[in-house]
């Protein structure tokens, strides 16, 4: 069985950034409430900006928080944050594709699998463990359903 799960190292780094931003936000709000060292515009812009980045990071982390098990001709998708779990037989895969993006001499790979019930999952090599094993598995079991068109 192939188990795809979020990479602990990625989530650890992202969590550190979240904590740093949260600390910054608390500092700014405390400073505004008790000291007022800066002008009002600074607080408004800085607090909004940090909140936005924080939310985007949390959304990113939550979106990637998924567990996928592949084997015995089925794919089990588990989204713990939504309490969703479903087993899809290989025949339920409509299409799948792997997108490869090279940036800063690093290769980022993302795979999307679309199922017949309109659900789809996306996983990437830098956020999830056992990514390459799943690609190999799908090429073997559902090779005809791969869309080969993207290379950037």
């Amino acid at each position: 069985m192939i188990v795809i799960k979020p990479k602990i190292s990625t989530y650890f780094s992202l969590s550190l950034i979240v904590v740093a931003l949260l600390t910054g936000l608390i500092f700014i709000l405390r400073d505004f409430a008790y000291k007022g060292s800066f002008g009002l515009w600074f607080y408004l812009i800085a607090a909004s900006l940090i909140t936005l980045v924080l939310l985007m990071l949390l959304v990113k982390m939550m979106a990637g928080f998924r567990f996928i098990t592949a084997g015995r001709d089925q794919i089990i998708v588990k989204l713990p944050l939504r309490g969703f779990q479903k087993a899809y037989p290989i025949g339920d895969i409509l299409v799948w594709e792997e997108e490869v993006v090279v940036a800063n001499k690093k290769e980022f790979r993302q795979m999307t699998v679309a199922f017949s019930d309109q659900q789809s999952i996306s996983i990437s090599n830098h956020e999830h463990e056992a990514y390459h094993e799943l690609v190999k598995y799908l090429r073997k079991k559902a090779g005809k359903k791969e869309i080969k068109n993207k290379k950037a």
Partner: peptide, 13 residues
């Protein structure tokens, strides 16, 4: 939508 489907779905929920 295709590129950020997971992110938008988290936001939607």
């Amino acid at each position: 939508l295709i590129e950020y489907e997971d992110e938008f779905e988290v936001i939607f929920f």
